[in-house]
Amino acid sequence: MIELDVPDAARMHALGERLATLLCAGDLLLLGGDLGAGKTTLTQGIGAGLGVRGPVTSPTFVLARTHPSLVGGAPLVHVDAYRLGGWDELEDIDVDATLDESVTVVEWGEGLAEGLAGERLEIHIDRSVGPAADAVDLRHVAVTGIGSRWDEDQLRRTLSV
């Protein structure tokens, strides 16, 4: 597991951009963390890094949004499982149909979307609870690669500033 401290939204975005350099079609990322942790901000960075058509915004209401590539690469499929109650409902929105040709990011996917692929990247973002202690609104990011697709050393080199 790789652990990082991210001090603000701009650097969360930059982390997503760096992560995007490692991503290709078929990759699945599961993002977890409480309301307001920064999952969408990280995904916006990934979208910018992949060079997909934006804007990348929270897909909670529409459940999933496909952002085609503007640079001839893989599209980003941005899924939000916040409103989904179980595996059946995730299957209903046909995320598995586009897995192979897309980079798929599932917010609120922990404990639900693991079955989509054996190899995946799990990212959990924690924010402190209660009032922001001071001007710094720190996020703790934990990245775990599951399966041989992910090389921990390469992840660490790419994600660390």
Partner: peptide, 14 residues
């Protein structure tokens, strides 16, 4: 312009 993160209705629900 538009929202850069959550939609307004979504914020109400959350």
């Amino acid at each position: 312009g538009g929202t850069i993160d959550d939609a307004a209705g979504e914020a109400f629900d959350k």
